[in-house]
């Protein structure tokens, strides 16, 4: 059994597995939402998860945001000054961060920092029978373990993306205004004239909320669905990061094409 038949068979299997998992993930989301009451009623459960996925991701978000902004400042000025419009640096930095880089890069960082941690935690709880033990104690693991982690991620992600964008703008300002010497007034005023609150800022926030839902769902699903062994957990973590990255980039394309169609 080799050659094209085997290849076709494997391909078919991969596709059907993928579709099956997709359906299961959708059912899982419904189950998750149905059992979310507790994580909202007992808020400290969710607050604890905001700490783990949000507060602990703060450092990497702040530092990366600053660096991305500084790179944008350098590269952007380099390009803009050829056309004699170095003053528009603020516009370039702010628009690229608020519309695209903020939500996308923060989402990718969030997936690899917090998403993988959530998958690892839930996966290990499954592998060491902690979830079974909880279920046996008549405590629903989806309500007690999965839902708070999901909501913690959904709440943290937009805040992290906003912090990333803000730090990026400050990074661009640092390079552009402080080091290169772009006029400070032009930097801010051109930025404010070009960045629209509803069109750019709100759309960026919507993107980050969508990414937060996607990454959190992938993270809890992969953890809950993993093979309960050490190897299974490590594979689940890899899958979380890979699928989150793909989901973020694909969703970004879809959202961008909807949001900015009329404008650009």
């Amino acid at each position: 059994m080799s050659g094209p038949v085997a290849v076709a068979r494997r391909l078919g299997r991969i596709v059907s597995d993928g579709v099956w998992r997709f359906g299961f993930a959708a059912r899982f989301l419904v189950m998750l939402l149905a059992h979310s009451g507790q994580s909202l009623m007992r808020l400290h459960l969710t607050v604890r998860e905001i700490y783990f996925s949000g507060v602990l991701s703060l450092l990497i978000i702040v530092v990366s945001g600053l660096f991305v902004g500084m790179v944008l400042g350098l590269q952007g000025y380099e390009t803009l000054q050829r056309f004699g419009s170095g003053d528009a640096l603020g516009v370039l930095v702010a628009l690229s961060l608020v519309r695209e880089l903020g939500p996308v890069v923060a989402g990718l960082l969030f997936a690899s920092r917090a998403g993988s941690a959530v998958t690892a935690e839930i996966g290990l709880m499954k592998a060491t029978e902690q979830l079974d033990a909880m279920d046996m104690m008549a405590v629903n693991p989806i309500a007690r373990v999965v839902a708070p982690r999901f909501w913690g991620g959904v709440i943290s992600m937009p805040l992290l993306a906003a912090i990333f964008s803000a730090m990026g703008v400050l990074g661009g300002w640092l390079i552009g205004v402080v080091f290169i010497g772009v006029d400070e007034g032009a930097f801010w005023s051109q930025m404010q004239a070009a960045v629209d609150f509803r069109e750019d800022v709100v759309n960026g926030v919507i993107k980050s909320v969508v990414f937060g839902v996607a990454v959190s769902l992938i993270a809890v699903f992969e953890g809950y669905d993993c093979t309960p062994t050490a190897e299974g957990v490590s594979r689940a973590i890899t899958r979380t990061i890979v699928s989150s990255a793909l989901a973020i980039l694909a969703l970004d394309f879809v959202l961008t094409s909807f949001m900015f169609r009329g404008v650009s």
Partner: peptide, 26 residues
């Protein structure tokens, strides 16, 4: 833990306000 989460949420909201008022033209 609550304190840190509080600080985090305040920083996040401050960043949003910064984006809305200083970067954007709300």
């Amino acid at each position: 833990l609550d304190l840190w989460v509080g600080v985090f949420v305040v920083i996040g909201l401050a960043a949003l306000v910064f984006l809305a008022l200083r970067v954007g033209n709300l």
